[in-house]
Design a protein around this nucleic acid. Structure first.
Lengths: 244, 244
DNA sequence: CGCTTCCTTGAGTAAATTCAAGACTTGTGG
DNA sequence: CCACAAGTCTTGAATTTACTCAAGGAAGCG
């Protein structure tokens, strides 16, 4: 169940102001966007969009985590994207999406009606330039993920995932990686992300714990004791940048 | 060894005129592009760009096939993209690529110097609009490929690959799928594409041959005898669209 | 407290990989 | 024209990895 909120955060005070599709827009352009925007919220587990649904709006994740998932005929599923705050939903020039979008947490979207947004995309270069960047970033992330899915072992997949989590939860502008981390997903969802089964994910986490690389303070809360060992386990080059 | 050609096909007579990044441009805009373009050719096996290379130009594939490849520390590789005529190389706003680009065939590129192209991207909406579409199409293809790499069996991967080949070699505008097909890649390259080993690729092809789904007239030339059986082997929905 | 959901661990199995040997193709030089 | 070499491909046997099936434990919530 989702509903449209009446509260309208002013764009200038929006938490994703500097990273979302609108980040390059000036005052006038923001005002124009403000006129066509709506907030929508979704409860944990809700499907935000089903594959093939008519796309009424496009928008940005303001709060929460959502996943993009694909399904085979017999029910096997693969997560093909993770949407975090400032990530963009929707595809100008196409009215459907080819995957299911599901809320993991409580998710808040900042939505723009599709037709007026596409019109603005044609007239406002600041918008289209930023959208190109966003799409290219996602493409880089998807390709990095293809390497993981196609060639990495279960251990390497798990280590890469944790390293990615760490760099995502890193405080903006800080060079230090965080030591205390939260797993935003269940074992089953992680498995879905990594192209593994939940049992394999559990075994790999236990192994990293046994080796003293990680320490768990709860099932979804842990500490990275040895970042060097973690990186060694990823299979990436020593200079390899963070993923997604 | 690559070299710059002096021959300049006029944009209006270019074979990829209607699909490349310039496809929306009008006469004036084409003239502007024409002024900053160059053709480059590469021999089979040549590396067009190494990971981390400074990107002097962006451009489109005019002729031939190239691959995007990523490598792990110990040498395992995964192909993360296939570039066919009209596909775009390069990333506005970034001066490096994060993968190796290799020519499979003899490849001809239509290259634009990076700085003036990026300037045009800001001033010519027809260019940025088309680039958004291209990036989004590639993103869809990458996500379809993630499903394949993460969840499909060797047999399903092989069948999906052949089905993709067929739809790619389909004559424009014709509804019939071609029966005679050419494999543009070696077994090793296919394995690299599908996240398998070359032996597994060979075994799967032999199996499909034994079942009467395919018939080989040479090692790289074959006929699809049974498209329905081929599709059943892909694991996709019956209505599932073609990939890439 | 009892239910459900999530997670862990073990044992057996299946799939694809690795290792190995040999066959077919293609091109080159004698 | 044939011999040979290099590259490519096929097939078999043994091995490894992750999966499936199964049972039980821990955490969260009414």
């Amino acid at each position: 169940m989702n509903f449209i909120l009446n509260t309208r955060i002013k764009c200038s005070e929006c938490p994703i102001r500097h990273r979302a599709v609108c980040s390059r827009c000036d005052e006038d352009e923001l005002a124009e966007l403000e006129a066509i925007k709506n907030y929508r919220t979704f409860a944990p587990g809700d499907t935000i969009l089903w594959r093939g649904d008519e796309l009424q709006y496009v928008g940005s994740v303001v709060k929460g985590v959502a996943t993009l998932g694909k399904t085979l005929e017999d029910g096997r599923t693969q997560m093909v994207g993770l949407l975090l705050p400032s990530d963009f939903i929707g595809r100008p020039g196409r009215s459907q999406v080819d995957f299911d979008i599901t809320a993991v947490n409580e998710v808040t979207l900042c939505c723009f009606d599709r037709a007026p947004f596409e019109k603005m995309l044609h007239s406002v270069p600041h918008l289209s330039q930023r959208l190109i960047e966003i799409a290219m970033d996602e493409l880089d992330a998807a390709r990095e993920w293809m390497l993981l899915l196609g060639r990495k072992t279960a251990r390497e997949k798990m280590a890469t995932f944790i390293e990615m989590l760490a760099s995502r939860q890193q405080i903006e502008g800080l060079s230090e990686l965080p030591t205390d981390l939260a797993l935003p997903l269940t074992r089953d969802e992680i498995a879905n992300f990594l192209g593994l089964t939940l049992e394999t994910v559990s075994r790999q986490l236990s192994q990293l714990k046994k080796e003293g690389v990680l320490e768990f303070s709860g099932r979804r809360q842990f500490t990275v004791l040895d970042y060097a060992a973690l990186h060694d386990a990823t299979g990436d080059d020593s200079d390899g940048g963070p993923i997604i």
